[in-house]
Design a protein around this nucleic acid. Sequence first.
RNA 1: UGGGCCGUCGCCAAGCGGUAAGGCACUGGAUUUUGAUUCCAGCAUUCCCAGGUUCGAAUCCUGGCGGCCCAGCCA
Length: 564
Amino acid sequence: MTTPEKPAPVNFIRHIINQDLETNKHGGRVATRFPPEPNGYLHIGHAKSICLNFGIAEDYPNATCNMRFDDTNPTKEDIDYVNSILADVHWLGFEWAGDVKYTSDYFDQLYDYAVELINKGKAYVCSLSAEEIRRTRGTLTEPGIDSPYRNRSVKENLDLFTRMRAGEFKDGEHVLRAKIDMASPNINMRDPVMYRILHASHHQTADKWCIYPMYDYSHPIADALEGITHSLCTLEFEDHRPLYDWTLDNITIDCHPQQIEFARLSLEHTVMSKRKLNELVTRKFVDGWDDPRMPTIAGIRRRGYTPESIRDFCDRIGITKVDTVIEMGVLENCIREDLDANAPRAMCVLNPLKVVIESVPADKTEMLVFINHPKTETLGKREIPFTREIYIDRSDFEENPPKDYKRLIPGGEVRLRGAYVIKCEQVVKDNDGNIIELRCRHDEKTLGKNPEGRKVKGVIHWVSATDCVDVEVRLYDRLFRADDPLVISKSADIKDQLNPDSLVIMEHCKAEKSLGTAKAGDTFQFEREGYFCVDNRHSTAERLVFNRTVTLRDTWAKIQEKQA
RNA sequence: UGGGCCGUCGCCAAGCGGUAAGGCACUGGAUUUUGAUUCCAGCAUUCCCAGGUUCGAAUCCUGGCGGCCCAGCCA
């Protein structure tokens, strides 16, 4: 919309691309790909990779980014994940080049290349058990030992591999291995498995195959077949790069993409591993994969984050090879900036305290005009009824105010946002001494102007008690207490790491009437509270549920913290 | 202790031999009918440490120290 043109990010990968363009390394082409395995939901860490790969395609002339599912393990994958991943990438605002690709599209070619490697004496069928392969692989400090099947003849290998494909063997009976070097200091080069037998139905190829290629073998070939120029992946694949290159160097193929590794995203107070996130869901610590506290794209979306804010976040954190942990504040700030500029304002009292303005007649309703945004006129205006009985937030009144408190106190004055200055004349309590009501008077000369002869510093939000709607508001906080993701994931029981206050449900909040017609996904700033959006799961026709996306910056809270 | 990678402000991050960008956080101060927003100012004599090369080093060399990853028929 009004987003000014931002300069393209600078990072070491783009430097490499610029250099390759100058030297015409890939014939002037730039082609990337985003290659998730459809075995789970996307999270904010994937967003970093998505923004990197698709961002490059957007910024370089004629560059492309493919959407490819790395679907080589049917036992872990599911079509439902395919669909949710596609939806998430679209939601982030990216378009892939051409059709969605699948590594399984290349199973025939992958098979043919495997035959080529066998014919060249560079691959063999190994009949060791998984356990035996593990044992003979060696350790980090000792070399492995050759498989007794390592020197099978080409003819025998071809025969066995053909029969593996034909389904003559059970799972685990044989594998196809690359013949490289069992003494390599890089464990990935110790005759890695290329194919394994898996009598499993595949979500794309059904029952056509009972042997499936491994990642290390299929990924470089899929990249090359698609003409990828820069194959971007995370740091843990650095050790796999020699194998990536070996594969392409030993088959007949005319493209050799460059694998470049970057650091994955870590965020304070959360974890990214699919295993841990899954545990949160299955043990019911959260309300599903799209729980607004989850770092999943679906969760973040339900929380009220916008695609723009996520993309902005990815730009801000940068791309490097340094293992880093980003502060939550960076993410929060991105959505604050977006919503401050774009969310209409509204008033909602989370913790209602009844206020009777005795100077206002009981039967009087005065319609006051409010602008929906302090800086954006095009967001329009609305009317709010001002009546004798209103609600304010309990935290906006103090009998024994701390130093510098500038809200309502006994005998003191405060401005009702967009309305009048009121003075607290009486505090009404029940038998237990709880404050149940405030009796006030308003100064009718203060609508739209400051009172004469005195300064009223405080401004508080309010809502008519006789003309408002009941809503539920859900306040979210960090899921885990510890900031370091490593501490969280290394904990014996993840339950011990949970923040008990990560969800606080406020059942009977009082919202201005106009909020009653809000629709799922609508976002507002509740003045002085934060940004909220209508929850799409728990809202009903009778009562809306609002999720707090993020609080407003709260310097008063900081001052109080320091005083405490 | 085999191999690979990394170390610039509290958190990110530019920098690529010519004398430390920027963002977030933080600290002032101005404006404000959101203690919000906005604005203005401040915030690394120093780049993990120690030597060396050089007129000159965060950038080059040597040696340490610290951190991360790898022994799936997962990706």
